[in-house]
Design a binder for these strands. Structure first.
Length: 760
DNA sequence: AAAAAAT
C-alpha cells in the first residue's frame, strides 16, 4: 500500500537523500514564475556540493519564508512580535536569514513544544499548506472563528443543539461499535499469532480455545468484551478444574526459566501454589469477602500474597481490619439482591496477583539527595526547579537501579512522584550514553516513554523536558488528535526522548517516520493499564521496535501480574520496588460513600459541586460527563468536561481551565483517572461508581497528592452496596457508607470540607 | 465503557 512507500522516504529523510528531494522540489519551484527570488541563490547550490549544506538549508527555508510571507507575514509578525524584538534582529543579520529564523524558533519551539509558540509555528507551516487543503486549515483557523463566535457561550445555550449533535453521536458510538468489529479482525488474526507470543493469548483464551466453536459462540453472544473479562474469573475457575492449565504452566518453565534468574518471585509463587490450598482458611479469614467465594481466582491471588508476610505488618493489620468493615455497613443487603450481584459479578474487576516487590523503607533512604543517587548537577538543579529538592521514597528506590541499566518494575501510590522516579535517571542515562557525541541532525530517539492518555503524555513531557533540557537533550511528544506535521518535523531534526501515546507512535512507526531502533530505554507509565485489552498489542509491537536488549521500566500505582505479558517477553531480571508503609492508613485521602436514591442524584451532585475548592467529578460515559458539565453550568456552577469525544484542543483547554482555576469543576471520564496531576483538587466525586478497584484507586488518587489532604465521595444506590463493598475490599480502602438524602448535613459538610480543613 | 490513529 502507499504506506510502504513512505517508510522508504522517511528512512531516507534521516540521511541526505531527502535533501536531494528538497533540491529537486526546489528546482521545480525555481521554474515556477512566482518563486523567482528564492530561486536564484538556491540554484547555485546543486552545482556547488561543498556548499550544499548551508545553501540547501537556505533554500528551503527561504522558500518557506516567502510562502508564509505571502500567506500573511504581517499577521505572523504580530503574533511573534515579542520574540522577534528579542532575538530575531540579530540573527536575521546572518547570511542565512531563513535558517537563523529556524534557529530562533527552536528555543522558542522547544520551549513551546508544550505550549503555544509551537502553535503559531505550526500555523505558519500550515498556511502554505492551507492553499492545498483549505478545509483543514479552515478547521484550524476555527480559532479565530471561535473568537468571532460568541458561539462558545452560545454553544452552551445552544447545547440543545449540541445534545442534538449528541444524538448524532450515537452514530459515533456506532462507529465505536465498529471497533469491536476491529477486535474481531484481530481475533481472526490471532491464529496467525499462535506462532509467536501466543502465550498471552493462551492465557486468556485457553479454556475457550479448546472449545473453539464455543469461543465464537461466546463472541456472538456477547458483543461485550466485558463478558470476556468476566470470563476471567471463570477462567480461574477453569484453572482449578483443569489440569490443562497447570499443564500450560508446566509448559512455561521455559519462560519461568528466564524468570528464575530473577528474584525467586516466580519461584516462590509456584511454591506457593500447593500451599494455597492450605491457606484457604486463612484467605477466608482475611477477606470473608463474598466475592471470594465466587471467585476462586481471586482468593488465589490473595493467597499469593505470602509475599506480604515479608512486608511490613501493615498489610496484616489491614486484613484484620477488613472483616470489621464488612460488619459495618450493609451485610444484610448482600443477600438482598443476589441476582444483581451475580450479574455484576460478571463484570470486569479482575484482581491479579501482586508482584512481589522489594519494599523500600522510606526511613533508610532519607537523607540521601538526588546527587547521592548518581544524578548530575544539572539534573539535580532542574529537579529543584521542579520543586523536587529531596527524593521521594519511590525515587530513592528506583534511580540507582535504573542508572545501572536494570529493568525496573515500580509501584508507588498515586501522587508519590513516579514521573521523576523514571524521568531523572532516564535523562542521566541517555546523557551518559551520548557522552562525547555530538547531537546529530535527524538523530534517532534514544528513549521512549509511553502513557495511556494524551494528557498524561503531555504532563510527563512537561516534567521530563525540564530535566532533559538542563543537559541539552531534546524531547518531543508523539500523540494523536493533532496534526502529524509538527511531530514529524521535530523527529526530522532529531530528538533524544520521545514521549507519547501508543496509537500515534505506532502510526509514525509504520510510516517510517519514527525510528525506534536506537531506543535504549523504554518506559511504560501506568504499565498495568497499558497491558489491558486494546493497549497491550500495540505496546508490544512498539517495544519490539526498540533496540535489542533495551532497558524497560514499568511504573504504576497498581502494578500487578497483569504486566506479566510484557515482563515475560521484554524484561530481564527486573528489579521490583514498592514503598514500605504505603497503604491507605498512611494515606491523606478520606473516603466516603453516599448511598442515595437515584432520583436525588442530580441535585445531590449539584450541592456537592457547589463549593470553593477544585472538584473533579468522574462519570462513566462521555455522554454523562458532558451532561453533568452542562447541568452544573445551568445550576450556575462553572464546569467543563474532559472526555474522548472532545477534540484534543478542547481537551487540553478544559483541563487547563481547571489547572489555572478558571473553573473549579471538571467532569471527566476515566481519561482523567490516571496520572493527571492538578495541584489542589481537594474533592473527587464519583458520580458513577467505578467497576474496577484499580479505577477507584486511580480516580481517588487525583486528590491527596504529594501529602496533601483530599476527600473522595462515591455516590451509589442501595442496589450497588455489595459491589461497592467488594471493590473497596480489593482496594484495601475503608470507607463508611452513609445513607444520604437531599438536604442532609453530610452534603454541606463535604462541600465545605476545604474550609474546615484549612482551620484544622 | 473508555482509551488509543486517521479518515
Amino acid at each position: 500500500m502507499p504506506k510502504n512507500k513512505k517508510p522508504a522516504g522517511g528512512r531516507a529523510a534521516k540521511n541526505f537523500e531527502p535533501r536531494y528531494g528538497a533540491q529537486t522540489s526546489f528546482q521545480d519551484r525555481k521554474r515556477r514564475p512566482g518563486a523567482d527570488a528564492p530561486a536564484k541563490p538556491g540554484s547555485k547550490s546543486p552545482t556547488h556540493r561543498g556548499y550544499r549544506a548551508p545553501e540547501a538549508d537556505t533554500a528551503p527555508a527561504k522558500r518557506r519564508w516567502s510562502a508564509s510571507d505571502r500567506a500573511g507575514r504581517d499577521e505572523a509578525r504580530g503574533i511573534r512580535s515579542n520574540a522577534r524584538a528579542d532575538e530575531r534582529p540579530a540573527r536575521s543579520f546572518d547570511d542565512r536569514p531563513a535558517r537563523s529564523f529556524d534557529r530562533n524558533d527552536r528555543p522558542a519551539r522547544s520551549f513551546d513544544r508544550n505550549d503555544r509558540p509551537a502553535r503559531s509555528f505550526e500555523r505558519r507551516d500550515d498556511r502554505p499548506a492551507r492553499d492545498d487543503r483549505p478545509a483543514r486549515s479552515f478547521d484550524r483557523s476555527d480559532r479565530p472563528a471561535r473568537d468571532d463566535r460568541p458561539a462558545r457561550s452560545f454553544d452552551r445555550n445552544d447545547r440543545p443543539a449540541r445534545s442534538f449533535d449528541r444524538n448524532d453521536r450515537p452514530a459515533r458510538s456506532f462507529d465505536r461499535n465498529d471497533r469491536p468489529a476491529r477486535s474481531f479482525e484481530r481475533r481472526d488474526d490471532r491464529p496467525a499469532r499462535d506462532d509467536r507470543p501466543a502465550r498471552s493469548f493462551d492465557r486468556s483464551d485457553r479454556p475457550a480455545r479448546d472449545d473453539r466453536p464455543a469461543r465464537s459462540f461466546d463472541r456472538s453472544d456477547r458483543p461485550a468484551r466485558s463478558f470476556d473479562r468476566s470470563d476471567r474469573p471463570a477462567r480461574s475457575f477453569d484453572r482449578s478444574d483443569r489440569p490443562a492449565r497447570s499443564f500450560d504452566r508446566d509448559d512455561r518453565p521455559a519462560r519461568s526459566f528466564d524468570r528464575n534468574d530473577r528474584p525467586a518471585r516466580s519461584f516462590e509463587r509456584r511454591d506457593d501454589r500447593p500451599a494455597r490450598d492450605d491457606r484457604l482458611a486463612r484467605s477466608f479469614d482475611r477477606s470473608d469477602r463474598p466475592a471470594r467465594d465466587d471467585r476462586p481466582a481471586r482468593s488465589f491471588d490473595r493467597n499469593d500474597r505470602p509475599a506480604r508476610d515479608d512486608r511490613p505488618a501493615r498489610s496484616f493489620e489491614r486484613r484484620d481490619d477488613r472483616p470489621r468493615r464488612t460488619d459495618g455497613p450493609n451485610r444484610s443487603d448482600w443477600n438482598a439482591s443476589p441476582k444483581r450481584s451475580t450479574e455484576h459479578e460478571q463484570r470486569v474487576d479482575v484482581v491479579h496477583e501482586r508482584l512481589q516487590a522489594e519494599a523500600v523503607d522510606a526511613a533508610t533512604v532519607t537523607g540521601a539527595g538526588f546527587a547521592d543517587l548518581g544524578l548530575g548537577d544539572n539534573i539535580v538543579r532542574a529537579l529543584a526547579g521542579l520543586g523536587a529538592e529531596k527524593p521521594f521514597p519511590i525515587q530513592a528506590a528506583t534511580v540507582a537501579p535504573i542508572l545501572e541499566g536494570r529493568d525496573v518494575l515500580a509501584r508507588g501510590r498515586t501522587g508519590s512522584g513516579k514521573t521523576i522516579a523514571f524521568g531523572a535517571p532516564l535523562v542521566e542515562r541517555i546523557l551518559r550514553a551520548q557522552a562525547g557525541q555530538r547531537r546529530e541532525f535527524a538523530r534517532a530517539p534514544k528513549a521512549l516513554i509511553m502513557a495511556p492518555t494524551r494528557e498524561l503524555a503531555l504532563q510527563i513531557d512537561r516534567t521530563v523536558q525540564a530535566i532533559a533540557r538542563s543537559v541539552g537533550l531534546f524531547t518531543t511528544q508523539i500523540y494523536g488528535g493533532v496534526p502529524q506535521a509538527r511531530q514529524v518535523g521535530a523527529l526530522r531534526k532529531g530528538v533524544d526522548i520521545v514521549i507519547g501515546t501508543p496509537g500515534r507512535i505506532e502510526d509514525l512507526l509504520n510510516q517510517g517516520k519514527l525510528d525506534l531502533s536506537q531506543v535504549q530505554v523504554a518506559v511504560l507509565d501506568e504499565a498495568d493499564h497499558m497491558c489491558e485489552l486494546g493497549f497491550l498489542e500495540p505496546v508490544q509491537r512498539i517495544l519490539r521496535a526498540t533496540a535489542e536488549g533495551s532497558q524497560k521500566l514499568l511504573f504504576s500505582a497498581t502494578l500487578d501480574r497483569e504486566v506479566a505479558a510484557l515482563v515475560d517477553e521484554f524484561l530481564v531480571e527486573p528489579a521490583v520496588y514498592e514503598v514500605a508503609g504505603e497503604d491507605q492508613d498512611s494515606s491523606t485521602i478520606e473516603h466516603r460513600v453516599l448511598v442515595i436514591e437515584h432520583r436525588d442524584k442530580a441535585q445531590i451532585l449539584d450541592s456537592l459541586v457547589d463549593r470553593e475548592g477544585k472538584t473533579l467529578v468522574f462519570a462513566r460515559t462521555r455522554a454523562y460527563a458532558e451532561m453533568l458539565a452542562e447541568q452544573f453550568d445551568e445550576a450556575g456552577i462553572a464546569a467543563v468536561a474532559l472526555h474522548g469525544d472532545l477534540n484534543q484542543q478542547k481537551r487540553t483547554r478544559n483541563l487547563e481551565k481547571l489547572t489555572s482555576g478558571r473553573v473549579n469543576v471538571l467532569v471527566a471520564t476515566d481519561v482523567a483517572a490516571r496520572g493527571i496531576h492538578v495541584d489542589d483538587i481537594d474533592l473527587v466525586i464519583q458520580a458513577d461508581a467505578p467497576d474496577e478497584y484499580k479505577t477507584y484507586l486511580h480516580r481517588s488518587g487525583r486528590t491527596g497528592r504529594a501529602g496533601r489532604r483530599g476527600t473522595v465521595v462515591t455516590l451509589i444506590t442501595r442496589q450497588r452496596q455489595r459491589r461497592m463493598t467488594e471493590l473497596l475490599d480489593r482496594a484495601e480502602i475503608e470507607a463508611p457508607f452513609e445513607p444520604t438524602q437531599l438536604g442532609d448535613d453530610v452534603l454541606e459538610e463535604l462541600a465545605g470540607r476545604q474550609l474546615s480543613d484549612v482551620t484544622s
